[in-house]
Simulated scan of single mutants.
Amino acid sequence: MDILKAMKVLIEKYLKYLEIEKNASEHTIIAYNNDLLSFYNHLCENQSDSELPPELESISRLDIRLWLADLSDKDMAKSTISRKVAALRSFFKYCFKRGYIYKNPAHLLVVPKKQKTLPKTATAEDLERMLDNVSTDSVSGIQERTILELFYSTGMRLSELAGLNTADIDLKQSQVKVTGKGNKQRIIPLGEKSKDILRKHLNGREKLFGSKTGPDARKALFLAAHGQRLYQRAIQRIVEKHLKQASEVTQKSPHVLRHSFATHMLDNGADIRIIKEFLGHANLAATQVYTHTSVERLKNVYEQAHPRSKL
């Protein structure tokens, strides 16, 4: 088996390993598959059939560096290149540990530093106005208000909200069970406003059942027009529509509500370690970006309010 055929087979085995043993999300598996196929296609384009070496072992660090240089020449974002490097490192580490290769060409491969960008957030006043402006005169209106309330009140991810079932909501205990990355579950408290709109939604939810309401949809917390589970793109459109009406924040997505949740909690004195648990971050470093957002906000307030802030 030549190098490329062997690599294609191992990519498929590796993706199965991510899915079954590592409980990786569908999003991660798709992204890593695309990244590894990008490297595979690069090898195909740069080697003729007659030049193909007989073993996967022949892939060198130089092959990887040439691929990264090619990505950089295409003006690909550093964050995207970093993810591709991470995918390749993980893949070759898997191959090395399983004995498919005897040396790891991606060992000690340096990941390009990501461009640091602060999370986009909306003000608390904008989000209060957004929530107050959602009409709750219809079942679908109540559902949209519930979606927005949960995003801002809990800080959960888009995939986590889309995957919610009615059984995950416990109004008596004032909490929601969320299934995050790697199928890890966590409990997030619910505030009174969240509980109030959730009650209304649960009471009228069955009116959203339709021709496509199957076993999965009957469990789902949120439903689409024909009664199937509400898919992520539809949720994104709901958030975008209401954020446009209430805020001038440049990015209008569910992640803005997640970022706003964390930043507003931090601004009001919450411990960053507690915010980490709310967000479902694996390590504190991922959460610390919100401290930078709060510092920037303090600087802006200082520059606007203090008489000695400007020349």
Rank of each mutant, 00 (worst) to 15 (best):
Q115D: 14
I29R: 07
C95E: 11
G99K: 12
D70C: 11
K22F: 01
Y32L: 07
S48P: 01
K116H: 13
F96Q: 08
F39A: 09
F39I: 06
L36C: 00
K13G: 07
S25Q: 06
T80Q: 01
N104E: 03
D35I: 05
L66F: 04
R83G: 10
I30D: 12
N46T: 08
N41P: 07
Y94V: 05
Y32I: 06
E55C: 10
Y14F: 15
Q47A: 02
K114M: 06
K93M: 08
H107Q: 15
P53D: 07
S79Y: 01
D63M: 04
E26K: 14
I59H: 04
V110A: 14
T117Y: 09
N46Y: 01
Y14D: 12
Y32T: 12
R89L: 07
K74M: 08
A106K: 03
E26W: 07
R83F: 03
L56Y: 01
E51L: 06
A86T: 12
L10V: 00
K84G: 09
K103T: 13
Q47K: 03
V9A: 13
F91I: 07
K16C: 08
L10N: 15
A24N: 11
F91R: 10
A77W: 05
E57R: 00
H27A: 07
R89Y: 05
S58T: 08
L71N: 08
A106C: 11
R65W: 01
R65N: 14
Y102F: 13
K84A: 08
H107S: 13
V111H: 04
L56P: 05
Y100L: 09
S60G: 08
Y14S: 11
T117L: 10
N104W: 05
L37H: 15
V85N: 03
L62M: 10
P54S: 11
T117G: 10
D75K: 14
K13L: 06
E51A: 13
K97R: 15
E19R: 11
A31T: 15
Q115K: 14
I20S: 09
S38M: 00
Y32A: 11
N41K: 14
W67N: 05
A106N: 03
Y32R: 13
L71V: 06
L56I: 04
Y102M: 12
P54Y: 02
L108D: 14
H27R: 12
E19P: 04
